[in-house]
């Protein structure tokens, strides 16, 4: 995935079954963000792989004051990339079983 400066990782082991997973997001490279970033640490949250949209979570982070509106796209993309990878891994694992 592209280096967006925003890192998103699983905050728990993926059992491959639950649709709701815990993710952890933090800024690795502030220079990649357009807005001035207030270093508030790692943000942990749950995300539903089936029903939720990464960009919506990014907007909630903006609304909560973690990021500025100008960076909502880069945060959304960072979450989307990680979610895509998790889904891809799950699909691959399912295919391997069959």
């Amino acid at each position: 995935a592209e280096d967006t400066g925003v890192r998103v990782e699983l905050a728990e082991e993926d059992d491959g079954k639950k649709s709701s997973i815990a993710l952890r997001l933090w800024v690795e490279d502030q220079k990649k963000l357009k807005g001035k970033y207030k270093d508030s640490g790692a943000i942990e949250f749950t995300f539903d792989l089936d029903t939720e949209v990464p960009e919506t979570v990014a907007q909630e982070m903006v609304d909560s004051g973690f990021f500025l509106e100008i960076d909502v796209k880069i945060v959304g993309k960072s979450i989307r990339d990680r979610v895509s990878l998790i889904k891809w891994r799950r699909q691959r694992s399912t295919s391997a079983h069959n």
């Binding site: 280096d3 890192r7 933090w26 690795e28 508030s40 640490g41 790692a42 943000i43 942990e44 949250f45 749950t46 979570v57 909630e60 982070m61 609304d63 909560s64 973690f66």
Partner: peptide, 27 residues
């Protein structure tokens, strides 16, 4: 010392905690 801060937004819970030193730069 590393107490987490909890922020609620539209029903979602964000838990904020310090980033472990080892995770700051992995590349």
């Amino acid at each position: 010392s590393s107490a987490a801060q909890v922020v609620h937004s539209a029903g979602r819970r964000f838990i904020v905690s310090p980033v472990p030193e080892s995770r700051l730069r992995e590349q």
